[in-house]
């Protein structure tokens, strides 16, 4: 287990436990956190689990993991930033325990 904090556009913070090997998109869905939709379920077929990794975690989390993730981020509804990731592609492991992600204004 590791902790992930989701920060909403209104500044609200929700911290939940995410199992190791589980991804940050699912952590939001299992805990009914608004702002992550994840409509394709982690199949790299939509861009509705877009998040901004907090600057303090950006180095550890890294940049998009694949060409597909990179291309889909270009199609995301909210503006893409240097720290943009698809949260389904961020997998919980001890190195990112405590991760903070910011949710975009919209996923569509």
């Amino acid at each position: 287990m590791g902790k992930v904090t989701y920060v909403g556009v209104d500044g609200s913070r929700t911290t939940v436990e995410v199992a190791e090997g589980e991804n940050v998109m699912r952590g939001a869905l299992y805990n009914a956190i608004d702002g992550i939709i994840g409509e394709c379920g982690g199949g790299l077929a939509c861009a509705t689990c877009h998040c901004y990794v907090d600057d303090s975690w950006a180095d550890r989390v890294g940049t998009p993991a694949s060409r597909e993730e990179d291309e889909l981020l270009a199609a995301a509804s909210a503006p893409r930033r240097a720290t943009s990731r698809l949260s389904c592609q961020i997998v919980m492991d001890p190195a990112i325990d405590g991760l903070i992600v910011h949710l975009p204004e919209t996923q569509y």
Binding site: I37, G41, A75
Partner: peptide, 20 residues
Amino acid sequence: RPRQIVLAFTVGVHSCMGAH
């Protein structure tokens, strides 16, 4: 082709759960 949303499995919350 660059990756786009392909509607084979629909979109929205009712996206096909069997897609993967």
